[in-house]
Amino acid sequence: MKHPLLVLGIETSCDDSCVAIINERFEVLSNIVSSQIDVHRAFGGIVPEIASRKHLEVLPLVLHKALEEAGVTLKDIDVFAVTQGPGLLGALLMGVCLAKALSFALKKPLVGVNHIEGHIFAIRLEHPEVSPPFVALIVSGGHTELFAVSEWGKYTLLGRTRDDAAGEAYDKVARLLGLGYPGGPIIDQLSKSGNGKRFAFRVGLEDEDTLDFSFSGLKTAVARVFAQLTLEGRERTSLLADLAASFQESVIRSLVKKAFRAVEITGYRLLVVGGGVAANHRLREVMQEEGDKKNVRVLFPSHKFCTDNAAMVGACGLFHFLRGRRDGLEIDPIPQLSLGEKQAPSG
């Protein structure tokens, strides 16, 4: 009897080396992630050349572990799916080249996947009942984008950041405050003991009639307050926590406001939030509260499927494969790959 269709996903768009295996029912058989955070921490951020070198170093082992954990061999795989973009060129290239080599060696089809679309598909791994239409907010270190998903595979870009991504703002502010890297989890943790109302930071485009975001000014605002801090000891620690919490509240306020404005415009009753920043506890809390207030269902993937992973790439690749898509060995990484056509908000 033919086994269920198996898809092997590969994700290397940034600093995580990921391989996962899923079946045609979107069930995850294995999901291996090798993080490079410790390597990049010394540099205070991601060094693209180092990221691609680490991918080369660990990918074969990550692949081996993914197969082992799923209890299958490469010969059992029916389709290879790989992140084609957006992302860091050198990092993407490692995943794409490995996928091409495997696809060629085993004469199995290859499907290139858009990383952002992968984040949207992450919700399908744990909520198979979810179906469009819905609004998707993808928010991470490299992206902050709002989509109207009218059907799987059909996206309208409603808004995006005009400068820094939300996760990037977290990293920059954490560096500024001397808190370390990566900024997201550190600020989220520190904020738990801080007063988020102590400093009123205004976020760019917050009150304008656009679904675009702007976070670059926020760092400057935090820097201005931070420069005035002369306190030491416990008072300083408490002020840092207040600063972190105030910064976080501002970012979240902007994300929530725009996301629910998008829900209002589209008339959809479901909001899906994905990407690394979607793992933030406070964002999840506030989004959920707002959803309850407005009678909108809000869904987040679990933490492991919010951050970069290859299961979401496999899921997205499976969807396109089932719709007949086949990519040849001529596919190349596309660092600026976009998703959906931009549409001005109305309503």
Binding site: L56, L59, P60, L74, C97, L98, A101, L102
Partner: peptide, 19 residues
């Protein structure tokens, strides 16, 4: 070339592992 050496190595590893 930084890119060239990595491209050759990852493709070689992938082929050798699969075959």
């Amino acid at each position: 070339s930084f890119t060239g050496v990595k491209v050759g190595a990852i493709i070689a590893k992938g082929l050798a592992y699969a075959l």
